[in-house]
Amino acid sequence: MKKFVITAFISALIAFAMSCGKKNTDTTVKNITTKSGIEMVYLPGGEFTMGSGNAGESPAHKVKLSPFYIDKHEVTQEMYKKLELSNPSHFKNEKNPAEMVAWVNAAIYCNERSIEEGLTPCYDEKTWECSFKANGYRLPTEAEWEYAAKAGTDSNYFFGTDSKNLKNYAIYSKNSSGKPETAGSRKPNQFGLFDMYGNVAEWCNDFYAADYYGKSPAENPAGPAEGKERVIRGGSWNDGEELVNSTARSMDGSISDACILRDTIGFRCVRKAE
């Protein structure tokens, strides 16, 4: 009896201690709708293999991530319009992803969406430093993006290895009509995320460094401390298989310069799970 009481007490103590931490320990992928009506997916976090043996994507390495929410779709022009922000897109269509978005303007969108929902903005608009402690929206780290794209798989594509199937999941150079299309018009991945491949390539929060995988921390890597270019992932309507997959890395200048804005680049948002 005494043993039972002690065991019950310890169990209760552990349960109490766990409940005191406010971290979300839900282990299932879930759909949610935010205050402003945007569909996101809760990803429970965990460990996965990031990178591959390919040049520029190596070494493949284990990365552990905390849980986070990620937009189900790329940020659309309609979402831009709701926040009354100037829509820079070349191919105007409210249902299409926003493109021609400079990294700083993607960060501004994140901050405005945070303000709209009463959350704390992540980006300091003077330095563009991201506060990962803030509960607002931000761009995904490169690791978060890849974890979301792989959706629990280890292959080059979340649907397997045969690139012929890409047409079912992505708008890319071989099936696009020379421009982006309606967000979510192809099949999602196993996490329910649309257009992780193609349509528009997506900004990540990280500065780009080709050798980063060789020295990145094992838990919640957030990219090099400084740099000129930011990471872009997933490829676009104008890219081929070499960029439209889970592991290919690319980058672009992060400054806002009208002369170099691209109608192939957009983004989606994440926020930490509390």
Binding site: L83, E84, N105, S256
Partner: peptide, 13 residues
């Protein structure tokens, strides 16, 4: 200026 919600430094805004 295009946006009444927030200021933009972008010349094209």
């Amino acid at each position: 200026s295009e946006s009444a919600r927030r200021f933009s430094l972008e010349s094209w805004s």
